[in-house]
Simulated assay, not measured.
Amino acid sequence: MIRSPSFLSYGPGTRPGRSPAKKSAQGITDYLRANDKMAALLPAITRMAALQQDCTAILPAIFDACSVIQFESGQLVFSTPNAALAAKLKQQLPKLQEALLQRGWQVNAIRLKVQVRKIVEKAKPVKQISLPVQAVSALASLTESLDDSPRNEALKAALSAMVNRHRSGR
């Protein structure tokens, strides 16, 4: 799968209202066309993207995690994230090769490479909620008005923590 660097996602020629995938593809295309040396890569990238798309259409469950990394002289090379997926894909290679031949791709051999990818977890956004002064005062009043019973203990602690957090944030 071809992934664009973040600086290309909103490149020249992109328009507001387009989907992120279209913005990304358009940004890459514009970048490649702007640079003569990079423009020579455009046909190869287009071909690889079309091949990736065909493979995903043929075996959608497997190709969500796999990607085409090379296609030269009839030899196709795929990247898989783990050995288990590579084993599943290996069982499907005859079906895939036949389907690609029917779609016009001259594939004589298919090789698999296991390439473990580093999983990057997205940082959880920090909540930036601020309560009005009246709301904080109302919560403080509620905390004081609750009975001191074991049943209300957890609620009072949570309300106190919320009031303290919002008072210290101001």
Rank of each mutant, 00 (worst) to 15 (best):
M1V: 14
I2R: 15
R3L: 14
P5L: 10
S6C: 08
R15S: 08
P16L: 07
G17P: 10
P20H: 08
A21Y: 14
S24A: 13
G27H: 03
D30Q: 07
R33E: 09
A34K: 09
A39N: 14
A39S: 12
L41M: 15
L42D: 00
L42Q: 03
I45V: 15
M48L: 13
A49V: 11
A50T: 10
A50L: 12
D54C: 06
C55H: 08
L59P: 02
A61K: 11
F63C: 01
D64R: 15
D64F: 07
A65I: 14
S67E: 12
I69H: 01
I69Q: 09
S73K: 15
S73C: 11
S73M: 12
G74N: 08
Q75V: 15
L76Q: 04
N82G: 06
A83N: 05
A83E: 04
A86N: 03
A87P: 03
Q92V: 01
L93H: 07
P94C: 04
L96N: 06
Q102T: 14
W105G: 05
Q106T: 12
E121N: 10
E121M: 12
K122D: 11
V126Q: 09
V126G: 06
Q134S: 07
A135D: 00
A135T: 03
A135Q: 02
A138F: 00
L139K: 00
A140G: 03
E144L: 08
D148N: 10
P150N: 03
K156V: 02
A161M: 08
H166M: 02
